[in-house]
Design a binder for these strands. Structure first.
Lengths: 205, 205
DNA sequence: GTCTATAACATGATAGAC
DNA sequence: GTCTATCATGTTATAGAC
């Protein structure tokens, strides 16, 4: 055939993608250490050595397969809006975190590279949130907000705690909102006044 | 000597303790997977096979070396007091978590047995806290409180986030208190009125 | 006999040969 | 691209020391 529909390069790319998908899934399920090259290769239907050929090492495969943690821009000037944005991102996470981010979080306590990645990503998010907070303890408050979210996400997605799995994302967000507003430094009166959705326009203007 | 100061059994117990101490330290630092029997044996100055002889398997060693997560009784009837107790336990954690608990947390995302242990321990704590909360969403609120605490602890102890490491436990507790009161279901007015130590009696009445 | 050390076997990661 | 060799590790079995 003079013009084959699938060239060598195409087939190679397709194989790479198959390997990456299998790797992402296994890394998310079992973490970095307990995921074996052989298992990834078997899941992708290729020879184990081929995985090494393509990605150099298990760590190289991890880096390619696991995308960075999603770091939302998250720098609205209004504090109430910031809280809403944090809660919205949590809803997304509770709904379904991308498998790559799951894989990164799964390994963050036992793999140095993953730990460093998460540390940097969370640090950036803390800086971003902290810059939007009015209080003097902005950075610490931001760190507490971000780590609290991390804890809820871990408890839900990674540990599978029943009370969190059974609750809806909206329910979680509703309970968390006043707490986060307090943590963000919103005065109690302002927070107690009205924080329903129709209160939004008033807050953002 | 008719009464030797160190009998065989004594020396064996001393060796066991040396192994357990080394194991706990390595498990806390590197997690279950990345800790090898050989490394533990080397740190304890014994033969690797001896470790197997004593503890049966790597998992047996883990079970012996790593104590359970400390589960405080945590069932005061007063909500404000409950929040204070949670914050106090956090202060302890930030000050210095026992190495065994650190080891358990380090492995909770990548080791099934550790995950199950933590899941049960957190579940018990959630039930305990939930039983003390007045709101109808007690269990979910308790789960959010406990996982938020977990996130802060992880961010501080395991990830070493700078803003948390630089802050004092008292500072963290002070910022967290209003948020936790909101999450615990303390009415905004009561929380805003006065949540200093002398405000406690007013809240419980 | 009990404690300790050595060796054997299985699996996994990686590198080099074909 | 595939296969084999090498090294590290967990585990089991066997032999030696007291």
């Amino acid at each position: 055939m003079s013009t084959p529909s699938t060239s060598r390069a195409d087939r190679r790319r397709a194989t790479e993608v198959r390997i990456l998908v299998s790797a992402r899934e296994l890394f998310a399920q079992k973490g970095f250490e307990r995921t074996t090259i052989r298992a990834v290769a078997a899941a992708a239907g290729v020879d184990p050595a081929l995985v090494m050929q393509y990605f150099g090492s298990k760590r190289g495969l991890f880096g390619q397969a696991v995308q960075a943690l999603p770091v939302p821009p998250a720098a609205p000037s209004d504090t109430g809006e910031l809280v809403d944005q944090l809660l919205a991102s949590l809803c997304l996470k509770l709904g379904g975190l991308p498998e790559g981010a799951l894989a990164m979080m799964r390994s963050m306590l036992t793999d140095q590279a993953a730990a460093e990645h998460v540390r940097v990503a969370l640090g950036r998010q803390i800086d971003s949130v902290g810059a939007a907070l009015p209080a003097e303890d902005a950075e610490l408050r931001a760190a507490l907000l971000v780590t609290a979210l991390l804890g809820v996400t871990v408890g839900h997605q990674l540990l599978g705690l029943a009370p969190l799995r059974e609750a809806s994302a909206e329910q979680v967000a509703a309970l968390l909102r006043p707490a986060f507003q307090a943590l963000a430094g919103v005065p109690e009166r302002a927070a107690a006044t009205d924080w329903r959705s129709d209160g939004g326009p008033a807050a953002e203007g």
